[in-house]
Design a protein around this nucleic acid. Structure first.
Lengths: 213, 213
DNA sequence: CCTACCGATCGGTAGG
DNA sequence: CCTACCGATCGGTAGG
């Protein structure tokens, strides 16, 4: 018994989800239509539908596909850098590169999904989007914590506040880059990140570290 | 001939547009459905439709209604403050107050619309959204220019960069406040704005912000 | 402003 | 994986 790594069905499923994630980044997870996806993939609507059983399951599977793409294209590369301020900077840079490289045709999948669901009624899809976004924020926050632990940021540095401000610049770059088709906004975000991190590290240089922390 | 200020038809139209702007802030301008709006307003679909002639015209009229609400609730109050750094701060504060007061049930209408249309094909609706957003950014930018002109910001201060960074904090506060139903994010944005403006004024050894209001 | 209707598309099902 | 179909809803129209 030598089971195939990926059955034919699983390959089809993956192809569906790659297309679904691309479509949803532009038209939203609600705008995803099973009929349209089926046409795009040259298969029948019910054949596609059978892989998921409901639109909500398709949406959840699409989020998981997008999450894996995000880990591969943004988080994993940045984790190649040593922990601390270098990695924090690398995470921001990797995000902006991911936007610039058009990893999703509709810009950052999770930015779009957060904007689509932030005011929607609770449900499995909304909850999952909130979790993914929280996970990314925690990744930024942990990088800031590491930087503080090794003295690259002041001991009274607020990692959550810093993560919020960095993520704000990244998200805005995503919207404006696409709305105005102008890469200047990516540069503005890079400058914002650099200035913010420089200010934070400069505080460490000015104040000597307290005797105990 | 003493024409009524508002005919009955115009009143109906206004009621439609108020409801449309509320719905669109949650479900998007594409998610706006004429049938659903008609049901909500207890009128027939075709009766409502006759006011606009096409869905696109309804969308454009809805944007104009939202724009007027935004001017009334955010821009006008802030313009009550004297030009310069005070007004720049007031604009940011007015935006966060507008989000906190739930002026639209789906958070900032233009944030939602920008996120919905940033990667869509060009068209009248997308163009109008881009114009409105640009107008708001210019409002922030002009306030920064004024501040620089009267020596409240350094002469080499980059107003567009400053406006981008302030707007980034405001937009992110809007998303996170609604996604996590947590007013802490409004506080984070206020702190980000204060820190950013303080840093900018401090660069030239200028006085920091006026005493807390 | 209404009723009545159009073709297209939606998510989902039956049966194979 | 398919064809064939369901009821509901979409934007829009005819006619009044």
């Amino acid at each position: 018994m030598t089971p195939r790594r990926t059955t034919r069905g699983a390959q089809t499923r993956d192809a569906i989800l790659r297309a679904a994630a691309d479509v949803a980044s532009v038209d939203g997870l609600e705008g995803l239509s099973i009929g349209r996806l089926a046409t795009e993939l040259a298969m029948s609507k019910s054949g596609l539908f059978a892989h998921f059983g409901s639109k909500e399951e398709l949406q959840l599977a699409t989020i998981e596909e997008a999450r894996q793409r995000y880990v591969r294209e943004v988080i994993a590369p940045a984790l190649g850098w040593r922990p601390g301020i270098t990695r924090l900077y690398a995470l921001c840079d990797a995000f902006l590169s991911y936007v610039e490289r058009d990893v999703f045709p509709g810009g950052c999948f999770f930015a779009s999904a957060m904007a689509e669901f932030d005011c929607k009624a609770p449900g499995a899809v909304r909850d999952r989007i909130a979790e993914c976004q929280e996970q990314w924020m925690r990744t930024l926050e942990r990088a800031a914590d590491d930087a503080r632990a090794i003295g690259e940021l002041p001991s009274d540095s607020d990692s959550r506040q810093l993560a919020f401000e960095l993520e704000a610049a990244l998200l805005s770059a995503n919207w404006y880059f696409h709305l105005y088709k102008d890469a200047t906004y990516l540069t503005r975000a890079r400058r914002a990140v650099q200035t913010r991190l420089s200010n934070e590290t400069a505080r460490a240089g000015l104040h000597s570290l307290p005797p105990d922390d």
